[in-house]
């Protein structure tokens, strides 16, 4: 990844043009050719630096409900628990963390009732009953761009 790649990444993280020829606009900002930008973006995607190019939504504004969940899972049952939890399409992030509650995952569903139903189903299927449901009451900050 060279300086030009870094310049492209900084441009396309949040300022991706919603227009007929977005890469031509990015190229103009950076003094490059349109096809050169497309070629480099293709390489950055192939290398796995760029995960995707698209929209990130405010799930609440789409009237979906989301929550953060924390579960206490015995060490020897973690793999099994995680594989059940990850089956749900609304589970978007799932991490092991240090502490009593050792599995932390986020869940998005079309409404609050569906969120609760999925959590009940997970508890039933895994027989792990210590799952905390910690929906956000208020958002103070979501930072989405990272200077490369």
């Amino acid at each position: 990844m060279d300086q030009l790649d870094k310049g492209i990444l900084n441009e396309i993280q949040s300022d991706f043009p919603i227009s007929e020829r977005p890469y031509r606009e990015i190229a103009a900002r950076l003094g490059l050719e349109e096809d050169e930008v497309i070629r480099r973006v293709g390489t950055l995607k192939a290398e796995g630096v760029i995960r995707r190019i698209g929209a990130s939504f405010n799930s609440r504004r789409l009237s979906f409900s989301s929550t953060l969940c924390a579960a206490r899972v015995p060490e020897d049952r973690i793999r099994e628990f995680v594989s059940v939890v990850n089956e749900y399409q609304g589970v978007t992030h799932n991490y092991r963390r240090n502490g009593t509650y050792n599995i932390w995952f986020t869940l998005i569903a079309r409404d609050r009732e569906r969120v609760s139903a999925i959590l009940e189903e997970i508890a039933l299927r895994t027989r792990i009953s210590y799952i905390l449901d910690l929906p956000a009451v208020r958002t103070f900050k979501i930072k989405v761009d990272f200077e490369v």
Partner: peptide, 16 residues
């Protein structure tokens, strides 16, 4: 309208 929070590239190693 803020329904799209952000439009652009998501980096795999955002915390590079």
């Amino acid at each position: 309208e803020g329904i799209i929070r952000r439009f652009g590239a998501t980096l795999r190693h955002q915390e590079a």
